[in-house]
Every structure is written in C-alpha cells, then in structure tokens.
C-alpha cells in the first residue's frame, strides 16, 4: 500500500509526513514525527493517554486515522510549553508532585489545557469531568485537581498583568 503525504500543522509548524493510510494519528506523531509524548495506553479511546488537540479540541489520537488530520492543526504535549519555559500547568504538576510513573501525564495535561481554554476558572467538578477521560493509576487524582486549580489561578494572574 503506497504511503501518502499528510500535510498538516504540528505544534505550530507546517509539516509534511509520508504515512501509510492504515496508521492512526497517534502512530504518525510518534513514529513519523518523532513526538513520543502522546502515549498509547489502550488504543481504543478509553484511557486518554494519547490525548492531543485537533483544531484546538482534545481528542483521543488513537482513534483518528492519520490522513483524517490532513489540513488540520495538531498540538501535542511537546507544544504545550516552550523550549525554555514550562506551561503553568506543567509547572504546577511538578511542584505538586503529580507525576509518579508519568505515563498518563501528557494526556492529562492536554485535557487540562483544553479545559482551561474553555473555563478560565473551573470548579472542582468541571476539573474532575474535564480529566475524567484520562485514567491514572498512580495518583488518585487529588494532586492533579489541586495542580490544575492552581495553574488556572496562575494563568489568570499572568493574563491580568
């Protein structure tokens, strides 16, 4: 089966990848674009470890065929902060000691980032539902919720400045 060109935007850069038609967006990002931050925890959209933003919305990239992303914009965990600075969410996750095994963390952060773009000051319930598609087996979620709450405050303060 011939590979096809997938032209899309990844973390702000226009990218052309040569991909087989039968791979997922997650595979294309990991294997062809070298972005191994998004993880495959289940392959069927039930764990959230592969969460990326597609046209600004959080999606399970294991359920998207690579060519379905043609012409669209993708943001991965590698594009959340900058080369030199962590995103406030990432910073809060580190300080709150959220990551343990770390495998779910990129997906949780992308879900949380999407949530904060929709709700600048989310309630605890909104946060819990916002990351309910992300299974974590290590943390019990309590420190995640605290870190997301704090990051929301930091972003708001930063915006006010």
């Amino acid at each position: 089966m011939p590979k096809q060109i997938l032209s899309f935007t990844v973390n702000g850069d226009k990218v052309d990848l040569l991909v087989p038609p039968y791979v997922t967006l997650l595979d294309a990002l990991r294997d062809e674009a070298g972005l191994t931050g998004p993880k495959e925890g289940c392959g069927t959209g039930d764990c959230g470890a592969c969460t990326v933003h597609l046209d600004g919305k959080p999606v399970a990239s294991c359920l998207v065929l690579a060519l379905q992303a043609r012409g669209r914009s993708v943001r991965t965990i590698e594009g959340l902060g900058t080369a030199t600075a962590l995103h406030p969410l990432q910073d809060a996750f580190v300080r709150h000691g959220v990551p343990q095994c770390g495998f779910c963390i990129p997906g949780v952060l992308m879900a949380a980032a999407a949530l904060l773009e929709e709700h600048a000051a989310p309630t605890e319930e909104q946060i819990r539902y916002g990351i309910a598609g992300n299974l974590c087996r290590c943390t019990g979620y309590t420190k995640m919720v605290a870190a997301i709450t704090e990051a929301a405050g930091m972003i708001k303060k930063g915006a006010a400045r």
């Binding site: 191994t36 931050g37 580190v94 709150h96 000691g97 990551p99 990129p106």
Partner: peptide, 23 residues
C-alpha cells in the same frame, strides 16, 4: 522535606522515554 521528584519536568513535557518510545 516535601521535595518534588527531579524527573518531574521530563515527565510533564513528554520527554521521558518508555520502552515503546525507543525505536
């Protein structure tokens, strides 16, 4: 002391490599 683990920054940026990430 409550000190955050030092691999935190690599884990929140997706830099940490698991087996499936090694090709």
């Amino acid at each position: 002391l409550s000190i955050p683990r030092p691999d935190g920054p690599d884990k929140v940026t997706g830099k940490v490599q698991y087996v499936a990430d090694i090709t």
